[in-house]
Amino acid sequence: MQWSVEVEARAGGFQLDVRIEGDRTPVVVIGPNGSGKTTLLRIIAGAYRPRAGRIRFGDRTLFDSAAGLDLAPEERRVGYVPQGYGLFPHLPVIDNVAFGLAGGPRRVPVAERRGTAAEILAEMECGHLAGRYPATLSGGEKQRVALARALLPAPEMLLLDEPLAAMDVAARRGLRAWLARRLARRGAPAIVVTHDVRDVHALGSPVVVALEGGAVVQSGPAAALAARPETDFVAEFFGAA
């Protein structure tokens, strides 16, 4: 499936003007703090409305300013895992994961919801966490639960905002490989925001998009950016390896 995002947005004094596209392999977005990475993900999720542009997933159009089309987040079929994972602190793990089956027209009964959630939790090797509250989980456990929750409604696009940033170094190494395997097995579009070049390498050789000051400064296969960086930030990002 081909997807494309072409948006122009203004928030406060900040201007975002981005055009990216991809297929079934993950696209990695890198950039310094304040370059608009999180804003971009939220625009794709439908939380912020861009001033102009178009967002298309395959033959579905999610946003088109010219046509006056703007699908609500709940109609976009996007899985969003924010920085810090965004687990609902008032719900146990099982209900966090089942949350995606509790709303909208696809709503199913509680017992069935929890059954489905338990299956995906087991598949993610965290069935034993079902009854725990998020505040009691480690960073790695939160990450798995958040991913299980995002994947349960079978989204077309997965948005991961710094999925490994909030955990300690040892946990990060194991989880990086695990996450890369999950994304590869899923074989569906994903955008991964990261600050760590090792995340890029773990994902094979994905397309990397470098954002600076709200604009794309360079994009292409990771190897190409590493070989011929066009800005100091890109050079530093790949040089740190």
């Binding site: 939220r42 999720a45 439908g46 939380a47 609500a72 987040p73 709940e74 976009r76 996007v78 899985g79 969003y80 895992v81 924010p82 920085q83 810090g84 965004g86 609902f88 602190p89 008032h90 949350f99 995606g100 089956l101 509790a102 709303g103 909208g104 696809r106 929750r149 995002a150 409604p153 989204p155």
Partner: peptide, 26 residues
């Protein structure tokens, strides 16, 4: 946290459902 409400919406919940199931309990 604003992100919690965005997540609730992407998980298929209407604004009202996100309000009653996430914002109000928290």
């Amino acid at each position: 946290d604003e992100d919690l409400l965005i997540v609730a919406r992407t998980l298929g919940h209407s604004p009202a459902s996100a309000f009653f199931r996430v914002a109000v309990p928290l």
